[in-house]
């Protein structure tokens, strides 16, 4: 008994001292559009430790995908990124383009949303995965091919040698998703950024993708930034959840705490608008990032808003050891 306890304490301590894999400090991603500045990501700070899955939840246009792409510096020329992005203690933002290319696809990987437009329609899918393997490993072609076939069978793509020669249009949506996954995990990355892995999939495929991500994460101890708008996917996978609204993180904490006891009115509103809870939409719609409301960005839609919310902008405050909220009138 005592032994078990100390073992547990040990593992807890390990978790506490676990190495930070990615630390984002005051990240701002701005776009210059027609002379005006659009703040897509505004002062976001977060940490992902080794082996952790962080769910990033938000609605269309809140900046969650831009945040993911900022980490990989895969943004168009008119984007400006400020702040610090520390990956294993090293600043990413100051890396040269060549250094960044070495990191991207090997240590940090993106599994993009929309599998059907992310594959080259004119290339056999096996060769597309092969590209990633050959680029980052010093393997002979034959060795690389067998590695790809191995990956395919691990991800339960039937008859790997035949699938290798298939073109994207011959695969279903779920299979394409798996091919992208194979590409992603091919180089044993440290961090996978998964952008909306279940968008547009039906319930059966969705649970399959969730299972696949879970297995990938636990088998290799890979960390993930899981970008999604689906609470149930985040609940099934993520250790912690960050909720984004209009470019900012409004709530962040352990998955169970955020889902069972949402403290920000926006999180509570989102959870309340799930179909199982009847039909209780949040009034109004998300603000355009070009013209944000004064004060708290959520106040025009918030039932708890008062004078203070219209006048000043709340900071992200610590509620308890692992739960942060950006609100003056926290829900209880």
């Amino acid at each position: 008994m005592v032994l078990v306890q100390t073992a547990m304490e040990n593992s807890e301590q390990k978790a506490k001292t676990a190495e930070t894999l990615l630390e984002i400090r005051n990240l701002k991603t701005y776009f210059k559009i027609n002379g005006s500045i659009v703040k897509a990501v505004d002062n976001v700070s977060l940490k992902i430790i080794n082996g952790e899955i962080l769910g990033l939840i938000g609605e269309t246009g809140c900046g969650k995908s831009v945040l993911g792409l900022s980490i990989l510096r895969l943004l168009p020329e008119n984007a400006k990124i400020e702040g610090n992005l520390l990956f294993r203690g090293k600043e990413i933002l100051s890396l040269s383009k060549a250094e960044m290319r070495k990191l991207r696809g090997k240590e940090i990987v993106l599994i993009p949303q929309n599998p059907s437009t992310s594959l080259n329609p004119l290339m056999q899918i096996g060769c597309q995965v092969l590209e990633a393997v050959i680029r980052h490993h010093n393997l002979k072609k034959s060795e690389a091919v067998s590695k790809v076939l191995d990956l395919f069978s691990k991800l339960k793509l039937q008859e790997p040698p035949r699938k290798f020669r298939d073109f994207p249009h011959q695969l279903s949506g779920g299979m394409k998703q798996r091919v992208l996954m194979a590409m992603g995990v091919a180089c044993n990355p440290k961090l996978i950024i998964v952008d909306e892995p279940t968008k547009g999939l039906d319930a059966v495929l969705r649970i399959e993708v969730v299972r696949m991500l879970k297995e990938t994460a636990s088998a290799a101890g890979t960390s993930m930034l899981l970008i999604t708008h689906d609470f149930s996917v985040a609940a099934a996978l993520a250790h912690r959840i960050a909720v984004m609204y209009a470019g900012e993180i409004v709530e962040m904490g352990k998955t169970a705490a955020v889902l069972r006891n949402p403290r920000h009115p926006y999180t509570a509103g989102l959870l309340n608008s799930l179909p199982g809870k009847g039909f209780n939409p949040i009034p109004g719609s998300s603000p355009s990032i070009i013209s944000l409301p004064e004060g708290c960005r959520f106040h025009p839609r918030c039932s708890r808003a008062n004078m203070k919310c219209t006048a000043s902008h709340p900071e992200l405050v610590k509620l308890n050891d692992d739960h942060f909220v950006r609100c003056f009138n926290v829900c209880f």
Partner: peptide, 17 residues
Amino acid sequence: TSMLDVSVQAQILKLIK
């Protein structure tokens, strides 16, 4: 509503009801 966000989905479902 399959292409819409949850809060917008709730609005459209409410409208259909």
